[in-house]
């Protein structure tokens, strides 16, 4: 997965659909208005107008967030290569936030608990929601984990 920043129009829809894809309802309106998930997006769009740049987890071969995790919550799936966080195991120490050289792990809250928020490539879906909903195809997913 990578971003073509010349096509990014700074609409932040990737963040919106990221939140929805990681909600119970998987519905934008419900995720924001009923489930209280505003702000829990896992990728982030940097802004320096007129420039904008979506930044995701790179699912590193030797992920420093996994190496630094104190609970064993952060893992790299040996089969798919996806780096993701077992949110029920995460205790919110934020070592991963300090570890990631892309600044791609966010300190967040969900369901009343502190949890590390990071891209899991929507591992339950066919295609990451940010890619599927990018209106200008600025986000490109070619399978695999980078």
């Amino acid at each position: 997965m990578y971003a073509r920043r010349e096509y990014c129009i700074n609409c932040h829809l990737c963040e919106v659909y990221c939140v929805a894809a990681h909600s119970k309802s998987r519905d934008v309106w419900k995720a924001f208005k009923r489930e209280g998930l505003r702000g829990t997006h896992r990728l982030r769009v940097e802004e320096r107008r007129p420039e904008s740049l979506p930044v995701h987890c790179r699912h590193c071969d030797e992920p420093q967030c996994v190496q630094g995790c104190i609970s064993g919550a952060m893992v790299k799936d040996p089969e798919t290569g996806i780096v993701y966080c077992h949110e029920d195991k995460c205790v919110g120490c934020w070592t991963c936030v300090a570890s990631c050289p892309y600044g791609a792990v966010r300190p967040g809250y969900r369901n009343g608990r502190p949890v590390a928020l990071k891209c899991d490539l929507c591992r339950d879906l066919l295609e990451p929601a940010c890619v599927a909903h990018c209106p200008n195809r600025a986000l490109v997913y070619e399978g695999g984990t980078t």
Binding site: Q64, W94, V97, S99, P101, Y102, G103, A104, P107
Partner: peptide, 13 residues
């Protein structure tokens, strides 16, 4: 305020 602390670690390393 910790957001993106890792970016600074990258700059250091």
């Amino acid at each position: 305020r910790l957001e993106r602390a890792g970016l600074y670690r990258w700059l250091i390393e």
